[in-house]
Design a protein around this nucleic acid. Structure first.
Lengths: 232, 232
DNA sequence: CGAGGATTTGACCCTCGTCAAGACTTGTGG
DNA sequence: CCACAAGTCTTGACGAGGGTCAAATCCTCG
């Protein structure tokens, strides 16, 4: 049941490229875990020292100031890797946005396994480099874009990422219609805005006919070209 | 002359941990290059496809919007690794802030070498993970901090990083006095502010006696505790 | 000494945050 | 099945932080 052979992300996560024998060994040190929406997997500053692969669902990575301001610094989709192996413990919380299933490892076990399996370390490196790229382009958004630009960029990114990780019915190309894994407050925390500004920008786009909002968390993109133009 | 044996970052860069034979091989595919202040090493979107180690000096990593807004998404100090190995070419420019020396490799050569030297890939992975941590905490700053908080955080980070990379006379602990490798405009581009706001916040801190500004790019921290409190 | 660039300072104003109220969802229990 | 409550989202009024534009001042270097 909880075996890697049947895992849906077996060929997309960092486990891809491991042979059967290695998979068995990895299987031995990991275990599946379910996290329900809103439940934390890792607390900021905690030293539970675990890492994980996302099998299913969406999780947020956040940091906060002492006075409670929050910034979402990353979003993990199926096949993404979570946690901080090797040395440092990074101060970020991980909380499930939707019901999720993950494959967790103690950091020590994982570190040891990774160091003796270069192919896995390589996969992890590629993934980390890609995440760094994405994070840097998000810095551009946070530092230099206006609220309308932020919202447009966000919707386009959602449309792409939700499609590519198979979270929506449509299988090819960006999703035209999708369900956000975020509340309005969480959208605000991703974009460095307030909930009110997010709401206002959403309704503005709706009134202009660029998007439709059939339900609280549902978005349909009616005019992708406009969004691209607005994204700046 | 340009050999790795005499390299000042030999034991701090990703080359640390390679034995002499490996170093010779790495030496064979790399070459030293000088970049003077203001000169680019990599253009956004270019496919020159090179990666590099910083030997000496400071460089900035930037992305820009079409209409010319710029965001500095990373700063590379001696022993830091620059560029995007494996697959993707990331769209960021690299420009020297000070006169700098780097050790460059064609990406293909480097990729091939790295894949056959797990120890080097591991070092690169650790470095990339650390950079991702730093980048994420910078997202918090860009998305959620006020201008005074940004400036205070920036000065503290400068004081730490310039000390640890040996860019200032003081060798132990954070630097009390240092020379910024940034112009005011570049500080603005790091913090997601305008040059005017940066200037005003600097003079405000000076008037309050928290810092002194003996010269254009020089900063002396008079009251570190205040800065920490202001950093939020 | 003068020119050109960088920085500072000032005046103004716009975007977005704050505060507050109202509307819409969702869930619960009678 | 409905009333009520609690949470989420939207809308409005207002103001402040920080951006914009413009001018003055300060370095730096030929």
């Amino acid at each position: 049941m909880s075996s890697c052979e049947t895992c849906v992300v077996r060929n997309r996560a960092i486990c891809a490229g491991l042979d059967n024998q290695e998979i068995v060994a990895l299987n031995a040190i990991g275990r599946r875990r379910s996290v329900s929406a809103g439940e934390p997997l890792i607390w900021e500053d905690d030293d539970s020292l675990l890492v994980a692969n996302v099998i299913d669902g969406v999780l947020k990575l956040t940091t906060s100031t002492e006075d409670g301001r929050e910034q979402i610094v990353g979003v993990a989709y199926p096949s993404d890797f979570i946690g901080r192996p090797f040395g440092q413990t990074s101060k970020a919380s991980v909380v499930a946005l939707t019901d999720a299933r993950v494959c967790v490892f103690s950091r020590n076990d994982f570190d040891r396994f990774a160091r003796s399996h270069p192919e896995l370390e390589h996969k992890l490196l590629e993934r980390t480099l890609a995440e760094l790229d994405r994070t840097r382009s998000w810095m551009m958004l946070l530092g230099r874009k206006t609220a309308p630009e932020k919202i447009a960029t966000f919707l386009l990114e959602m449309s792409d990422r939700l499609a590519e990780t198979g979270c929506t019915p449509i299988t090819r190309g960006p999703a035209k219609r999708f369900t956000l894994p975020f509340s309005r407050q969480q959208v605000a925390d991703v974009l460095g805005l307030t909930i009110e500004t997010v709401s206002r920008q959403f309704t503005k786009l709706k009134n202009e006919g660029v998007i439709d909002l059939p339900a609280r968390r549902d978005v349909e993109i009616l005019n992708r070209a406009s969004l691209v133009a607005l994204a700046g």
